[in-house]
């Protein structure tokens, strides 16, 4: 077993642990922190079903972003939808036999790679071209875009320019999933691609990528507008209902 294979296996186990552990910790934190007041941004749905629909539109269509700015919406939505297709396509490296819908998605996922990089390019360009966005951009904002662009282009490079041994790559990942190490090809493009993906997994729970779980816990979006019909109170606030706190003077 080559050193590279062992190294990448270790990196992916560690990255997966950090991604899952980090996200579980963050999600637990969000779930356990109470939202003491009703603060949906109104007009808001008055029923739980309505909230599910609002959230679905927000997550799938980026409704609020669409209202806000068509360029950011275009680039952002293009990137995210493309990323989804790309991820679906990549399931073929983790499943045997490959699910039929993953097979169907292969051509879409392939070309979505280009759209993904284009969307990222548009988002990055805004960080230079729009003075307001330039003002708020931190080094990490640029670096995360660079990271994703490198992941995209290294992947596209392997697909369209310099092929790697995808059969071996698949064997490596199927093996990883059952703790049975298989040799990983040593093409530079593949090593860069996988190394950056591992890095992305590691920074996910400690960076702004937390917007992914965060949106589901955003009180302005996930609360129903029913404050007159139901009493909503946080555990820490119930103590006021009794004792000296219950007087105005």
């Amino acid at each position: 077993m080559s050193f590279l294979t062992v190294l990448y296996a270790c990196v992916f186990y560690a990255a997966t642990a950090m991604l899952v552990g980090g996200l579980v910790a963050k999600i637990r934190c969000y779930a356990r922190t109470p939202a003491p007041l009703k603060i949906p941004t109104t007009p808001a749905p008055t029923t739980t079903g309505g909230v599910v629909l609002r959230m679905a539109r927000e997550v799938a269509l980026f409704e609020s972003l669409f209202k806000s700015n068509k360029w950011i919406w275009l680039f952002g939505w293009l990137f995210h939808v493309s990323l989804l297709l790309v991820l679906v396509r990549h399931l073929r490296y983790f499943t045997e036999p490959v699910w039929f819908w993953v097979s169907l998605a292969q051509p879409f996922g392939t070309y979505a790679g280009f759209a993904m990089v284009a969307g990222l390019g548009g988002l990055w360009a805004r960080r230079f071209l729009v003075d307001r966005v330039r003002y708020i951009s931190t080094p990490s904002d640029h670096l995360i875009l660079v990271l994703l662009i490198f992941i995209g282009t290294s992947g596209l490079g392997m697909r369209f320019i310099s092929h790697t041994d995808v059969v071996a790559v698949k064997a490596f990942f199927l093996g990883l999933m059952v703790f049975d190490l298989q040799p990983l090809p040593s093409d530079p493009a593949l090593l860069v691609h996988l190394g950056l993906v591992a890095l992305l997994m590691i920074i996910f729970p400690i960076s702004k990528l937390l917007h992914a779980p965060g949106i589901f816990f955003s009180p302005t979006r996930n609360q129903t507008d029913d404050s007159r019909e139901r009493r909503h109170i946080a555990p820490w606030a119930t103590k006021f209902d009794a004792g000296s706190g219950s007087k105005s003077e």
Partner: peptide, 13 residues
């Protein structure tokens, strides 16, 4: 959540 989730997209600017 608001401290963590912002990506500096610029939609609000």
């Amino acid at each position: 959540v608001f401290m963590d989730a912002c990506v500096h997209c610029g939609a609000c600017t």
